[in-house]
Design a binder for these strands. Structure first.
Length: 576
DNA sequence: GCCGTTTTCGGCCCGACTGTTTTCAGTCG
């Protein structure tokens, strides 16, 4: 039986929920949640670790007891503790905790006083006015529960980063109209460039917080004000997205920005560090007793606990504190480090602009090379190119290269067939500068067959890099089942490369696999996969994801100069 | 239940807002 890390994490979170409702030791509950978070961000399979008898207690937040429970879950598929808790409390009850406004205490009260076990029961009880008399509840709470259930039924919970960026842009513009806004920044997972965000966290410094809050709640896109106080407010926008605003004094801006950027796990780790130094960190600064010793900028907050500045994309408690203390933080790649783009389409297949238009735009954006990689013919939906079509395009590229001051590479996004062969004859592949292999079909193959398919494609002597390696579409399609670690190891052995596809709907490879590729020494190519001249904007999303994956300039293929790049591609070909 | 440059025991991040409480518990970020 295949057990994924997320399966184990889900069981740990369920146990934490049930223990919370029971009123168990809060630190024991936190231990289960910490372990679940570790498992959810781990690139390696714990089931494989168990098979290989590797030491689970090396993982952060996993001690002897939880290591034993992980072994139990990956071998039996379940956990005795969870089963026992389910005998004490109904199994559906933890769903109630997901409802905003309901925490463990209230869920417990609802169960004990009204025997409410499911959302449906809660909804009908609230409709009938049976909630308001439960101790600790009232009419307002009953109303909010009804609203929360209705809202949950209609809204999508997370949003892609590109949509979040659009909304953030309009909010920033709106706040520019307020004379009392001194500094403003968007914090939270948005600032950490997470691929999806659940809400937007806006931070403002001002000496007139009341005016700023008043201005905020008049924003025309707001459909509901959830909370409104002297220094913060929470609202829901028309798109369903929640926006939280916090206003602080200028001397606290850095501390508040640091605090609201998170992640939660990172913040807790740094606060714990501060505590050992006898310091207290909160939204207002770093305090030694009653004296504020830092807080105007983020840098001073880090310095106060003896750390160098840590970039927001690294703040996930995935080893950045240890690296900071050891002085081994990565010098994260920046957008301006990219010298070229190795994946772009034209009107010849499913793109919107001509070869010339794409090349001119890439040059205007400061790139010194661009690979044109239209689809191959078996992807009929995109009107892919056959051998004749590609030969024609190669001639056009020769002509343009003689004319333009940017190097255009002859490439193709070649279909990887079900058996791992490539969708073009060898004599054509050999004439291309770059061969980008991609899976667009047969997503449902077994893990073994999908992995073999891709590895066999990599073995073709002309294969250069693997496009969007997992095939996922964010919030729309799960990745196909594939052993990414094996593929990364095979890429290293074969000498080829993997793509980080920068489309905000893909961002594929994910951050954790970027970390894995980096640690295995496999170069990543951050590519726009542009289908129009506007899509070169994608690159900044790709760079955000690359930074989350700890990538430095030297870890990224398309930071090489054109000569270095051509030499690197040549080496992949003389490999066999 | 985890963890250790004060510790193998005794800690474990911290404050704002809401509603129901009439001084604060619960929830959230």
């Amino acid at each position: 039986m295949l057990i994924h890390n997320t399966d184990v994490a889900t069981i740990f979170n369920q146990i934490a929920d049930l223990l919370e409702i029971k009123g168990d030791n809060p630190f024991r509950i936190r231990a289960y949640r910490n372990a679940a978070r570790t498992l959810n961000t781990l690139a390696f399979s714990v089931q494989t670790m168990v098979k290989e008898k590797r030491n689970l207690t090396d993982l952060p937040g996993i001690g002897i007891d939880l290591a034993g429970k992980i072994v139990e879950i990956v071998t039996t598929g379940t956990c005795a503790l969870r089963e026992q808790l389910h005998r004490e409390l109904p199994s559906s009850i933890h769903e109630l905790l997901n409802l905003p406004g309901l925490g463990p205490k209230r869920v417990k009260a609802l169960y004990q006083e009204r025997n409410i076990q499911t959302l449906d029961q809660l909804y009908s009880s609230a409709c009938n006015g049976q909630i308001r008399n439960v101790p600790g509840f009232g009419i307002r709470t009953e109303q909010r529960i009804l609203e929360a259930i209705r809202a949950q039924q209609s809204k999508k919970k997370r949003y892609r980063l590109d949509l979040a960026e659009t909304i953030a842009g309009s909010l920033l513009k709106y706040f520019q109209a307020s004379p009392h806004v001194r500094k403003i920044d968007i914090a939270g997972s948005f600032r950490r460039r997470q691929e999806t965000v659940g809400d937007l966290d806006i931070l403002i410094s001002s000496s007139h917080p009341d005016s700023v809050i008043q201005h905020f709640i008049k924003f025309e896109e707001i459909v509901q004000v959830l909370a409104q106080g002297k220094t913060r407010a929470s609202v829901v926008l028309r798109q369903g997205m929640q926006v939280d605003l916090r206003v602080v004094a200028n001397v606290s801006f850095g501390a508040a920005l640091y605090y609201s950027t998170g992640s939660k796990a990172h913040n807790i780790a740094v606060r714990t560090l501060a505590q050992k130094r006898g310091l207290k960190i909160n939204e207002y600064g770093v305090f030694s007793g009653a004296q504020r010793i830092a807080g105007e900028t983020e840098l001073t907050v880090f310095q106060s606990v003896g750390l160098p500045y840590i970039e927001p994309e690294l703040r996930e408690n995935r080893g950045e504190l240890a690296a900071a203390q050891a002085g081994t933080l990565p010098q994260l790649i920046r957008l301006t480090d990219l010298a070229g783009d190795l994946h772009a389409h034209t009107k010849a297949s499913d793109g919107q602009h001509s070869l010339r238009e794409m090349a001119m735009e890439a040059k205007n954006r400061g790139l010194s090379y661009l690979a044109i990689t239209d689809h191959s013919s078996s992807l009929t939906i995109t009107h892919g190119l056959d051998a004749q079509g590609l030969i024609k395009q190669m001639n056009e590229i020769d002509a343009l290269n003689a004319e333009l001051d940017i190097k255009i590479l002859k490439g193709c996004e070649v279909e990887i067939n079900e058996d791992g062969t490539l969708d073009l004859p060898d004599d054509i592949l050999e004439r291309l500068d770059i061969v980008v292999g991609a899976v667009h079909s047969k997503f449902g193959l077994s893990r073994e067959r999908q992995t073999m398919r891709i590895m066999r494609a990599m073995d073709h002597p002309c294969f250069t890099l693997l496009a969007h390696p997992s095939g996922r579409l964010i919030l729309e399609r799960e990745p196909y089942d594939v052993d990414m670690h094996q593929i990364i190891l095979h890429a290293r052995q074969r000498g080829c490369f993997l793509e980080l596809n920068a489309q905000p709907s893909r961002l594929d490879l994910s951050d954790t696999y970027c970390m894995m590729a980096r640690s295995e020494g496999v170069l990543i190519s951050v590519n726009s996969d542009a289908h129009s001249i506007f899509d070169f904007d994608n690159l900044r999303f790709g760079i955000g994801q690359a930074r989350r994956g700890w990538l430095e300039k030297d870890d990224v293929l398309n930071t090489l100069s054109i000569d270095q790049l051509l030499a690197a591609i040549a080496r992949t070909r003389c490999h066999r």
